[in-house]
Design a protein around this nucleic acid. Structure first.
Length: 475
DNA sequence: TCTCTGCTCAC
DNA sequence: CAAGTGAGCAGAGAC
């Protein structure tokens, strides 16, 4: 859904691009298909449900997904429409000020790079940067190239050169600062709808193949949080009015809980049932030490393995990721498989199921078709096999939060609350709340998120909620 | 002006 | 060969 289609659900039409007098740069094809279809069927005065089925059924492939359509996607349309319509307030003054700071800092990094390189060039061009680093400065005689023959200058490549030349810090600094400035700090104020004074994202319901939502114009699902400078940007996401607060609720380790539950692995299920720190518990098993003797490094490595499992990562990837030898990586993975035997079995089962049936599915019955699963090409087949492992996990998490959103939205609507659900970021929901409703809202959110879709083997689902004067504080 | 590429942000 | 799902920016080059 997007804001435009709101008019067919009884809202006044608000079209961001028209109001700003500027066309969106990246008009997703789904959005256009959706709009055309809706216009077409609206002209025939057809029922909205029917209209949307015309849109989604061909995309999600036939009737077998009907339960997912009827129980999840169709009810979710109204929820997303409301969220898009409500939008989120942005503190423009804060961003304007921050933009200047980023500009100054970026300039300093840039000048420092030119001074150290002994030439001036366009630092924002990976092509030019590669030539400077690997031809003029000769930082790595075995420098990797991209498929188009340029030198690769991605973050991972540069980090490996960091102890060789001080220039690397300034290059990475420049990259971080200009990324933040161009993608968020300068772009967001431009996206404010003059009528509402807020930014209204569009959620795409049928773009991500796993069943996740995606967000665009602007994308509010990739607002920085990892670095200190990036995190600042979240301070600009504020309640719509004086006196209101932002509330943020996160699922805790939802994908790992889903792995545990659908694989039925006894050790991992038990760790969750006992409310243990899952990465510490994993490290304890893998390294065969008591939990109180798990070191930071052991936990860090176990965490990496846990995430790798979700993606179908192998020893090579783990070694690369952790900067350890492939022998050590293989040892860790072998131990992991031994301690959590059902996880390996689950992965094999998913791949075999896909090979026989041509698809895999989530707990709610959402399917992902994998046409390459029996390919004779190793690379192509390997990719499909990792999809077979990952999709049910990522997709089940998507099913769960969507069901929670529907329940929360229904209850808020029925009781005519003034607080609004405004954002979804895969495992997080954000609310713009009035103070008088905060307590009951917190209760509602936690209750719905944790019970919307109970997991097998009594694996508990947990969610945390925070509150504050901006998105950063709410975390 | 459009499209592709490389890169980087999120979960 | 080697880690899943997305969106958006600037550069580079085709037209």
């Amino acid at each position: 859904m997007d804001l435009l289609s709101a008019q067919f659900l009884g809202y006044e039409p608000v079209h961001i691009e028209e109001l700003i007098g500027k066309k969106g740069k990246n008009q997703g094809s789904m959005r256009d298909v959706e709009l055309e279809k809706i216009k077409e069927y609206a002209a025939e005065d057809a029922d909205i449900t029917f209209q949307l089925k015309q849109v989604f059924v061909p995309l999600l492939k036939e009737k077998e997904v009907q339960p997912v359509f009827d129980n999840v996607e169709n009810p979710l349309v109204r929820v997303l429409t409301d969220m898009e319509f409500e939008g989120v307030k942005i503190d423009v003054d804060f961003l304007k000020q921050y933009s200047k700071e980023l500009e100054t800092e970026a300039k300093r990094c840039e000048e420092s790079v030119y001074a150290q390189a002994g030439v001036r060039f366009n630092l924002a061009s990976p092509k030019q940067l590669g030539e400077v680093l690997f031809e003029k400065l000769q930082l790595d005689p075995k420098a990797k190239k991209t498929k188009t023959g340029q030198y690769a200058t991605g973050e991972d490549v540069l980090l490996k050169l960091a102890n060789q030349h001080k220039i690397v810090d300034d290059i990475l600094g420049f990259r971080e600062l200009t990324k933040l400035k161009s993608t968020y700090v300068d772009a967001l104020p431009e996206m404010i709808n003059p009528k509402t004074g807020r930014v209204h994202t569009s959620y795409a319901q049928a773009v991500a193949v796993t069943g996740r939502l995606s967000s665009n114009n602007p994308n509010l699902q990739n607002i920085p949080i990892r670095t200190a400078r990036g995190r600042e940007i979240r301070k600009a996401f504020v309640p719509r009015e004086e006196g209101r607060v932002l509330l943020s609720a996160d699922y805790s380790q939802i994908e790992l809980r889903i792995v545990a539950a659908i694989s039925g692995d006894p050790n991992m299920c038990e760790a969750f049932r006992q409310h243990k720190d899952i990465h510490t518990a994993t490290a304890s098993k893998v390294y065969n030490v008591p939990e109180n003797e798990v070191t930071k490094e052991m936990r860090y490595k176990a965490k990496s393995v846990n995430f790798g499992i979700i993606y179908g990562q192998g020893a090579f990837g783990l070694a690369d990721n952790l900067g350890i030898s492939r022998t050590e990586a293989k040892e860790i993975i072998d131990n992991y498989k031994k301690e959590f035997p059902n996880i390996q079995r689950y992965m094999d089962e998913q791949v075999n199921f896909a090979k026989e049936n041509g698809y895999v599915q989530t707990l709610a019955g959402r399917k992902r078709w994998l046409k390459d699963i029996n390919s004779s090409n190793f690379t192509v087949r390997g990719y499909a096999e990792r999809n077979a492992i990952n999709s049910p996990i990522q997709g089940t998490a998507a099913d769960m939060i969507k069901l929670a959103m529907i329940k929360i939205h229904n209850e808020m609507k029925t009781a005519s609350w003034q607080s609004k659900m405004i954002l979804q970021v895969h495992d997080e929901l954000v609310f713009d709340a009035v103070p008088g409703e905060v307590d009951k809202l917190k209760e509602l959110i936690i209750r719905c998120m944790t019970t919307a879709m109970p997991l097998p083997h009594e694996v508990p689902v947990e969610a945390e909620v925070g509150m504050g004067g901006n998105w950063l504080e709410a975390h």
